[in-house]
């Protein structure tokens, strides 16, 4: 099939960007979306033009490196899938496809479709972990965890940190991302000692990074390639309220 792509090109963070139009020719329906971009890039390089920069790594939907907003949808039209797992059979011959980077103040563009998502790392740095020094752990079965809680924690822990929640959120909020981490830790007995400080610090960092406020539109959950539930945001909200009331700070 042949497609027309309108792709965001931007040399670096400080340059102005604009859309460029490219033809993707002889694309097979079995190719993945990124393989289609690979093919376009091969042609661009041979023609002496700068290839389109886009982040990708594992190409099997788990590393969270790939991004892209495709025709207005984070990770493209399929739900529960990352861009690398999107296949061209989802498109038809002659389609026009608009490809944009994830857009948020907290995700500045690095080049073309590549964005800087280190704000997510800084959120985790501020408390998204359990402080246990290597070697100081107790016997693994010393603390039983109800299976239901363990399963809910795993549901939340499935987050791949791709940022689609932010990209899809009308407010560029990262509440689903924080909610998932806060929930995972709050549901486990190991997470209790730091429960209060964790949520307070993570939300503070979230706000300082310039993410927006959640208005419960649930676009994040629908865009999330791991289908993480907004119940995790609710848990975050009540953890935050509780911590605000009980903290001694």
């Amino acid at each position: 099939m042949n497609l027309t792509l309108r792709v965001w090109r931007q040399k670096d963070a400080s340059s102005e960007g604009q859309f460029e139009t490219y033809e993707a020719q002889d694309i097979s329906p079995d190719q993945s979306f990124l393989e289609m971009l690979d093919a376009v890039n091969e042609d661009l390089i041979v023609a002496g033009k700068a290839p389109i920069a886009f982040d990708h790594d594992c190409r099997e939907g788990i590393c969270g490196t790939c991004s892209l907003v495709i025709d207005g949808r984070a990770h493209g039209p399929d739900s529960g899938k990352t861009t690398c797992s999107l296949h061209m059979r989802r498109f038809s011959d002659g389609d026009n496809i608009v490809i944009e980077p994830f857009r948020a103040k907290a995700f500045p563009v690095v080049r073309d479709l590549v964005t800087d998502r280190s704000s997510f790392d800084r959120i985790i740095q501020s408390g998204g972990y359990i402080s246990v020094k290597t070697g100081s752990a107790v016997e693994a079965n010393a603390m039983p965890v109800p299976k239901e809680n363990s399963d809910l924690a795993m549901d939340a822990a499935a987050c791949i940190g791709c940022g689609a929640c932010v990209a899809a959120c009308p407010n560029a909020s990262a509440m689903l991302f924080i909610g998932a981490k806060v929930s995972q830790m709050a549901l486990l007995p190991q997470g209790q000692p730091e429960r209060e400080q964790r949520v307070l610090k993570m939300v503070d960092t979230h706000d300082a990074e310039g993410f927006g406020n959640c208005t419960n539109e649930y676009e994040c959950m629908k865009a999330c390639p791991k289908e993480i539930d907004v119940a995790n945001i609710a848990r975050l909200n009540r953890e935050y309220l509780k911590a605000t009331i009980t903290t001694r700070d």
């Binding site: 309108r6 965001w8 859309f19 907003v69 025709d71 207005g72 949808r73 984070a74 739900s79 608009v98 944009e100 857009r103 948020a104 103040k105 907290a106 899809a168 407010n171 560029a172 909020s173 310039g210 993410f211 927006g212 406020n213 539109e217 649930y218 676009e219 994040c220 959950m221 629908k222 865009a223």
Partner: peptide, 14 residues
């Protein structure tokens, strides 16, 4: 929080 807007705005379904 989103100074640069999207060219295409499509809902995810939420």
């Amino acid at each position: 929080a989103r100074p640069d807007r999207y060219e295409v705005n499509e809902n995810e379904g939420g």
